[in-house]
């Protein structure tokens, strides 16, 4: 077992290193996210919408769209030079590859959020009147990113095997993310008004969702990355 996690860690480190060395993907994601956030808040200002109410929705729609860019490359880069086969040989277990890629995508998403969430906070001008529940907010961000990374990694493994099917990735991904979207928006909204007790059930649901979509791919990934 320690050997298993060691392999996961090694592949994870490799991917993360690659992510930060070829900085362009991460940079593009960050700029895209910042731009989305800017466009949303600006558009709401123009239409004179009560932006504070819209904050959780804007936040998560921005994260959902940007996550597509962030995750899209995680298997694509293994396609060149038959790196995927080498990776399969080296690890000997497809679950290891899934977990490593999943942790890498999760890390990238967290880095992304560290930059973009404060930006959105400022643009929208959130005023919480002291009732802001920062712990709940952090937990909901983490649970949301976890689910996104798990489903995204799984589906990216599916779509890279089909040539000329880039557009399929979001089409496959968004229907699966609906329960997550409902949960995280309600949780981050509750965090803003500081009513933690009202969303406790949702936290469990999100946790169950995340665990399910992390464990199911471990079984199904053998069929995804076949041959």
């Amino acid at each position: 077992m320690p050997n298993y996690w060691r392999k996961v860690f090694l592949v994870y480190r490799k991917d993360l290193r690659d992510e930060f060395r070829t900085f362009d993907n991460l940079l593009a994601t960050l700029v895209f996210g910042a731009m989305l956030v800017f466009i949303f808040s600006f558009a709401f200002q123009l239409a004179d919408v009560e932006t504070q109410q819209a904050f959780p929705a804007v936040l998560w729609v921005s994260i959902f769209f940007s996550s597509m860019l962030a995750i899209q490359r995680s298997f694509a880069k293994e396609k060149d030079n038959g790196a995927l086969d080498a990776l399969l040989l080296a690890t000997g277990d497809r679950g290891i590859i899934f977990l490593a890629k999943f942790f890498c995508n999760l890390t990238v998403l967290v880095v992304f959020e560290i930059v973009v969430v404060p930006l959105l906070w400022i643009f929208i001008g959130v005023n919480t009147l002291g009732s802001f529940d920062i712990l709940l907010f952090m937990v909901s961000l983490l649970l949301g990113s976890w689910g996104l990374a798990a489903i995204g990694t799984m589906l990216n493994g599916i779509t890279i095997q089909i040539p000329s099917a880039r557009l399929l990735f979001p089409i496959l991904m968004f229907p699966l993310l609906v329960p997550l979207l409902i949960g995280v928006i309600l949780c981050s909204h509750a965090a803003l008004i500081g009513s933690r007790a009202s969303v406790l059930g949702w936290m469990y649901l999100l946790l169950a969702f995340d665990l399910l979509f992390t464990l199911a791919p471990l079984i199904l990934f053998d069929y995804v990355l076949e041959g």
């Binding site: 799984m154 589906l155 599916i158 095997q161 089909i162 496959l172 229907p175 699966l176 609906v178 329960p179 409902i182 949960g183 309600l186 059930g201 949702w202 649901l205 969702f209 399910l212 979509f213 199911a216 199904l220 069929y223 995804v224 076949e226």
Partner: peptide, 28 residues
Amino acid sequence: ETRKRLAAVYGIISFINVPLVFFSARWW
């Protein structure tokens, strides 16, 4: 062959997702 296999995987995960969608929307 590949697409059939991948579609089968998607058919399985999306089915697992149906009750989750239903209960989350119901709570809401």
